[in-house]
Design a protein around this nucleic acid. Sequence first.
DNA 1: CGACTCAGAATGAACACTCATTCATCGAAG
DNA 2: CTTCGATGAATGAGTGTTCATTCTGAGTCG
Lengths: 217, 217
Amino acid sequence: MNTHSSKPKHKSGRGSSDKRERILEAAIRVFAQGGFYATRVSDIAKEAGVADGTIYLYFENKDDVLISIFQDRIGKLIEVLREVAGRDEPVDERVRRIIELQLGLLEGRRDLAEVITVNLRQSSKLLKQYGAPLFTEYLELIASVIAEGQRSGVFREDVSSRVAARALWGGLDGLALTWALGGGDKDDASRDAALKKAAHQWGELFLDGLRGGTHHA
Amino acid sequence: MNTHSSKPKHKSGRGSSDKRERILEAAIRVFAQGGFYATRVSDIAKEAGVADGTIYLYFENKDDVLISIFQDRIGKLIEVLREVAGRDEPVDERVRRIIELQLGLLEGRRDLAEVITVNLRQSSKLLKQYGAPLFTEYLELIASVIAEGQRSGVFREDVSSRVAARALWGGLDGLALTWALGGGDKDDASRDAALKKAAHQWGELFLDGLRGGTHHA
DNA sequence: CGACTCAGAATGAACACTCATTCATCGAAG
DNA sequence: CTTCGATGAATGAGTGTTCATTCTGAGTCG
C-alpha cells in the first residue's frame, strides 16, 4: 500500500459514473467475501463485468478502490445518521433508531459493514488516514445524541457520551461478528431474525444501563 | 490459504520449544503492527532473529503460524477465564473481573488481542475452522457467568446470556478499536489510563443494564 | 440514410515485481 | 565423525499494473 490520492480518475460523462459505481459495488461484494488481500483486481473486474485494465480508468490502484468505498459509503451513512440524530424525538427513541439504522446496515449491507469494520482494523497508515476520520465522525454523531440525553437528565452523566457511543457500536458489531461465526445450520432468514432479536435485547439493556437505570419489571 | 494441519513440526529437544515460542511471539508482534497479509515470512524471521527457512522447521507455512497463535494463545486465555468464571464470588464481581481480564489483554497484550480480533473477521475458511470454535468457547464462559446471575435473580432474564456476553465483549473491543483510531497526541500511559477509565464506565453501564437496573445515584 | 472519421473508452496479455517456500550447503552439538 | 539444526539465495507462483490494440459512439458529410 503506497501513498496515493483517491481523486476520481475518470472524467467522461458517457455512462462512466454507472461503471464506477458498478465497480465499487462489485468490490464491496468480493472484499466482503474474501477480504481485501485475498481479492485480486481481476476478481473485482470479473464481478463488475469489465476488463482488468478498466479498473485503472476509474481508480489509481487497488488501494484506491478501498479508499473510495470508505469515502463514498461512510459519507452517505453519515448523512443518514445526521438526519436521525437531528430529529425532534425523545433521545431514547433516537437511540433506538440509531440501533435500527446500524442493524439495517448489518442486515442489508452486511458486506459493506464487514468491509468497513475489517479494514478499519488494518494497521495501514493509508486506511487510517482515510477511514478513521470519517468513522470517528459517525461515532461522534451517536455520541451527540447521548450527550443531549445527558444534558436533559434522561441519561446518566458518569459515563462519557463517547464511551457509550463506542460501546453501543461495538456491542452491535460484536453481535454481528459472533453471529457470523456461530453454528450455521440455520437459513439466512432465521439468522437475520435472531440477529434482530439480539439487537433489540442489546438495545434495551444498553438503554437501561444508560438511564442508570430504570427498573425493569 | 490452503487446507493444512497445524501440527507442530519440529521434534528436536535442543532449545526447539524456545525457538518455536520465540517465532510465535515475534509473529504476534509483527502481525499486530502490519496485519497478517502485509507481513512477510522474512519479517517474522527477522523479528525472531532466525533465517527465513527456519520458520519452516517449526511451522508448515505462513498460515500455520497464525493458526498456532490461535490455538496456543486462546487456549491459555480460556484456562484463565475458566478460573475467573468458576470463582465463588458474586456474579457481578465476576463480570468485573472478566472486564479486567479483557482489559488486561487489551492493554498488556494488545498485539495479541489485535491479531485475534482482526483475523477472526477474515473470511478464510481455515481461520474459521481453527479460530471460531475456540473463541466461541471463550464467549460461552462469559455467558455462563451471566446465566448463573440470571438463575440467582441478580440479572434480568429478558436478555439472553449469550447476547449479553457477546455485547460485553463487543463493547470492550469497540472501545479498544476506537481508542486506537482516536487522536493520538497522548503518550501510551495516559492512553491506557483513558482506556481503563472508559472500560470501567462501560462495565458499570453494562452491569446496570444487566441488572435492569439498579438506580444509579 | 449510410459511410466515414475521430476521440475516447475498453480490453487483456505481457510485464515487472513480490514473496512464500525449497533445498543444497554449512554450522553446531554430542 | 555423524546427525541434526540453521541458513539464505534460488525458484516458481501469483498478481498488480501497463500499454498497444481494438472497439464504440457521436458527429459530420454527401
